[in-house]
Amino acid sequence: MAEKSVSEPRILAFCCRYCAYAAADLAGAMRLRYAPSIRIVEVPCSGRVEVGEMLHAFERGVDGLMVAG
């Protein structure tokens, strides 16, 4: 992740392809505004996300993490 200003949080979101990722797509299509802090990773299902992977994200320095499905 590119280093930006220190104050801007970096949040990783694991999004289910069929629910939250599609919702994010729709949000884009609807031109909704939301914080630029989010980095979306598409997963086939939110059940795919492992605790170990979430911990790795924190190890690498993310400030927050969302699992959305």
């Binding site: 949080p9 629910c19 919702a23 939301y34 979430m54 924190f58 927050g64 969302m66 499905g69």
Partner: peptide
């Protein structure tokens, strides 16, 4: 508090944007 689970359907774009704002 740094981790959060959100349940959304594919039609819930507004709620997605709200969840991102709240988490941020």
């Amino acid at each position: 508090e740094r981790v959060r689970m959100v349940n959304l359907s594919s039609a819930m774009a507004v709620q997605f944007a709200e969840a991102v704002e709240a988490m941020t």
